[in-house]
Write a protein that binds this DNA or RNA. Structure first.
Lengths: 252, 252
DNA sequence: GTGTTTATCGTCAGGCAGACGACTATGATC
DNA sequence: GATCATAGTCGTCTGCCTGACGATAAACAC
């Protein structure tokens, strides 16, 4: 198959970001409001073109930094929590997914601790954290009375895929700690699982599981009472990335 | 961010295929020999350009049919085994991965039963099934005395990612049946797991596990002795796609 | 028949998870 | 200060699943 430059159609390649965080007991995603057609005024996932000299992961990290100020966690510095988790999610290339031209989008999934406030070029009204159920639900009205319109393009599908990836991945990996601040309690970690899965977990069994898994949590020695009640031990994420055996989400 | 056509660089988009099968107790991948530079004469994964009006999955299915004659299993006809399993794997877009131009490749993973013989445009010498260890190993000589050169482009990485995906996915899904003919025995299925994981499994525990998982296997009523020894029951793949609890590969 | 191969059924002990009781240590309220 | 509410932590018990492995069954080769 010769690589005749006239033999292949040109594509635009973008990265789209599913940025997830946990706020007020709910799994939330970052959404930005589109400023121009198509889908003008509708909410969409943040994203942008891949530049000529950029790798896909670089482009995703750049977009993430532009939208949130987050830096990407460097796997070479495991002990230091220096940013968000970022991984490639999937690629979407339906010929009609963008009405103007042929665009292939490489979606990425980012997991971040709760952040102060989104910034999209400094305009806060054009970026927000929204519960994923609200973004995926069609029709009706959001918490602020705004009518719920589906996300632009195929972004509802991308978001759904990203949420499902996150939900399944925290089962067998230590990725849930990416939603937590550098130091956190077992209860805070449990509330992350509960928000992502949308279920209630038994605090005692959860405590036994996460503290009994070698390398998952490392006690820092400190305690906190920021959640009220009895002071809780503080932990950092340990070096283990895979949980074996996994923590399976309850069925139904 | 305006979609000014002059604002984004044009990309070529290809699909590359990791086609896996099990032959003679070994996990094998389809490799094709490159006919022109770069990497002329080297082995590579099959693949090709995505056409202007094609979805990514369509392009991958078309390439798979061109290279192997396989049709893709239609999920809408679960009971009928009408082809191979095909899923998107990951996307590779390093700016230097192709020395000629900017190419983004959307890799797909295909799992197929053992096939008669590969065909690459009718020329058998330019396509072959090779054990994945041989394709991933650098230096030395293959079984036929041919010197082992690394796969072209970043295809060794793509192959490694595809193999790891297959190895982990048969843990928690019924996907291993995609390596089997429409009717198969428990022993044949076990040999698939053994080949993919490269380990030996206890036949008794394996039998208990797969026959005890509801919806995994459906007895057809027939038996066969094609493996020698006592006749074995024949099964088809059941409707279940997820195994819960999973069948974990033995550690180390 | 004897030996070999493969399939299939059973048994047993250990590990792990779900259900849940009990106790501890803080802040809030009266 | 006593009481209450809240959250954290330690145990116990039971049932399920798995790994290790014995035993039997049904074919073929000689």
């Amino acid at each position: 198959m010769p690589y005749d430059p006239s033999a292949f159609p040109p594509f635009a390649v973008t990265v789209d970001l599913v940025v997830l965080t946990v706020r007020r007991h709910a799994l939330c995603a970052l959404a930005v409001r589109r400023g121009e057609p198509p889908f003008q005024g509708r909410w969409a996932l943040p994203g942008g073109f891949v530049r000529a000299d950029e790798d896909l992961a670089q482009a995703a990290a750049r977009e993430l930094a532009e939208e949130t100020g987050l830096r990407v966690h460097d796997p070479a510095v495991p002990a230091q929590d220096n940013g968000a988790h970022l991984e490639q999610l999937a690629t979407y290339g339906d010929p009609k997914r963008d009405p103007r031209m042929r665009v292939v989008s490489v979606a990425h999934l980012a997991l971040a601790p709760d952040l102060p406030a989104p910034r999209a070029g400094g305009d806060a009204s054009n970026a927000r954290w929204a519960p994923v159920e609200e973004l995926l639900q069609q029709g009706g009205y959001g918490r602020d009375g705004e009518p719920l319109a589906p996300l632009a393009f195929d972004h509802a599908q991308i978001l759904a895929d990203g949420v499902e990836r996150a939900r399944s991945k925290i089962e067998y990996s230590s990725l849930a700690t990416a939603f937590c601040p550098p130091e956190f309690t077992v209860g805070e970690l449990r509330r992350v699982y509960e928000a992502v899965w949308g279920v209630a977990l038994d605090p005692r069994n959860f405590h036994r599981k996460v503290t009994g898994t070698p390398g998952f949590l490392v006690p820092t020695g400190g305690t906190t009472t920021r959640q009220g009640g009895r002071p809780a031990q503080l932990f950092r994420a340990g070096g283990a990335t895979l949980l074996n055996p996994p923590m399976l989400r309850p069925e139904v």
